[in-house]
């Protein structure tokens, strides 16, 4: 059912025979072993799997924060192995938006400036930066907190700020590694409906890692990791019904 759609759309992520191993004191530690995955423009993918199965490692590679040991990784049609650090930084800046479990806002910086930060590196002027950051905060429901600092608001609010920041340069891909991991159920659902809208209304591709089935249910496709391999890949609703997380 995804097949015809996939053929029509562009491939945002294409991973072939991807391996990743860490060199540890105890010798090489293989984490990802022959991952093959294609994610099309506009998909909403949930990544699940037991702790230590390599989900975060995989997400970091997708986000060009880390490099695979071997294998091919194409982002938006670019072979990332061929890109230099500036080009990768530019992809992180324009094409990707990150949302982390721990929010990762800069503590000493006001919310509006946190959101405006990606625009700084995109070379946008100050007044335009602040205007756009203000709009984004408005959109995630935090329009009245522009001058606040991260430690003055709740975790759920901080995650909204992080999402606003991720959206600053109108990315095509949002990578979210356990974005609701530190949040209560109600707040989690609020955050997830935010993602849902971004995917539905703007067609932004979303890949998110989660342990919770009710969070994963927001996604349309579910990929399961097991010991560094993809153990299942399919429509999320069906999987979640037969094997609740």
């Amino acid at each position: 059912m995804t097949e015809p759609a996939a053929r029509r759309r562009r491939s945002v992520v294409l991973v072939e025979h991807l391996f990743k191993q860490y060199e540890t004191a105890a010798g090489p530690h293989p984490v990802l072993q022959d991952i093959n995955l294609q994610i099309m423009d506009g998909e909403f993918v949930a990544l699940m799997g037991p702790s230590g199965s390599g989900k975060s490692t995989f997400m970091n590679i997708l986000g060009c924060l880390d490099t695979p040991t071997s294998g091919r990784f194409e982002l938006d049609g670019h072979d990332t192995a061929r890109l230099d650090s500036d080009r990768l930084a530019q992809l992180r800046n324009r094409f990707i938006g990150f949302v982390f479990q721990g929010f990762n806002l800069l503590p000493r910086v006001s919310l509006v400036e946190n959101v405006a930060l990606p625009l700084v590196y995109a070379g946008v002027g100050r007044s335009e930066r602040l205007a756009r950051a203000g709009e984004l905060l408005e959109r995630v429901g935090l329009g009245q907190y522009l001058g606040h600092h991260p430690n003055q608001i709740s975790g759920g609010q901080q995650q909204r700020v992080a999402i606003a920041r991720a959206l600053a340069n109108r990315p095509r891909l949002i990578l979210a590694d356990e974005p609701t991991g530190n949040l209560d159920t109600t707040t989690s659902h609020e955050i997830m409906s935010l993602f849902d809208r971004l995917n539905a209304d703007e067609g932004i591709t979303i890949v998110l890692v989660t342990h919770e089935a009710d969070v994963a249910r927001f996604a349309h496709r579910l990929v399961r990791f097991q010991d560094g391999k993809v153990s299942h890949d399919g429509a999320s609703a069906a999987v979640l019904q037969e094997a609740p997380a």
């Binding site: 986000g63 924060l65 650090s85 500036d86 930084a89 530019q90 992180r92 800046n93 324009r94 990150f98 990762n104 806002l105 800069l106 930060l117 990606p118 590196y121 995109a122 920041r165 600053a168 340069n169």
Partner: peptide, 14 residues
């Protein structure tokens, strides 16, 4: 960590 965050959102080395 702050440097890492900045890099994740697009700061180049320079």
């Amino acid at each position: 960590r702050e440097i890492g965050i900045r890099m994740a959102i697009g700061a180049r080395r320079r």
